[in-house]
């Protein structure tokens, strides 16, 4: 899995490309820990190129949502494929995390 990092003003954008499973999660977790211990309060994760997610990956998003909320920041996910979206719905995360159809809408929420 590839992790691409971008910054737009105060907003950190993390783009994931590939599979997020038990094997690839540790790499992303290291990156996310750096973000959680930084002063970043506005985080967007772009999942357009994420092809697969398991419960190991869902934990990352749940932790991120909690940590950013704890900093009084804003967190959103965008551009989920149908497969990834269905895993979020089955696990009940769809209702508690801000999820938008595209980057533009997500950036509006994070403003």
């Amino acid at each position: 899995m590839n992790i691409i990092e971008e910054k737009q003003n105060d907003i950190m954008i993390i783009k994931l490309d590939g599979r997020l499973d038990a094997t690839t999660v540790p790499t992303l977790e290291t990156k996310m820990n750096l973000i959680h211990y930084s002063d970043i309060k506005f985080l967007l994760m772009d999942l357009e190129k994420l092809t697969y997610v398991s419960s190991a990956g869902l934990r990352i998003f749940l932790v991120a949502a909690k940590k950013i909320k704890g900093k009084n920041g804003k967190f959103a996910l965008c551009s989920l494929s149908n497969e990834v979206q269905s895993v979020f719905k089955l696990s009940g995360l769809y209702e508690i995390i801000k999820i938008t159809a595209n980057t533009k809408d997500a950036l509006e929420i994070l403003k």
Partner: peptide, 13 residues
Amino acid sequence: LEDRPIGGLGIHL
């Protein structure tokens, strides 16, 4: 979100 535990979703899926 605040009360949702981390983990426990695998077997549920």
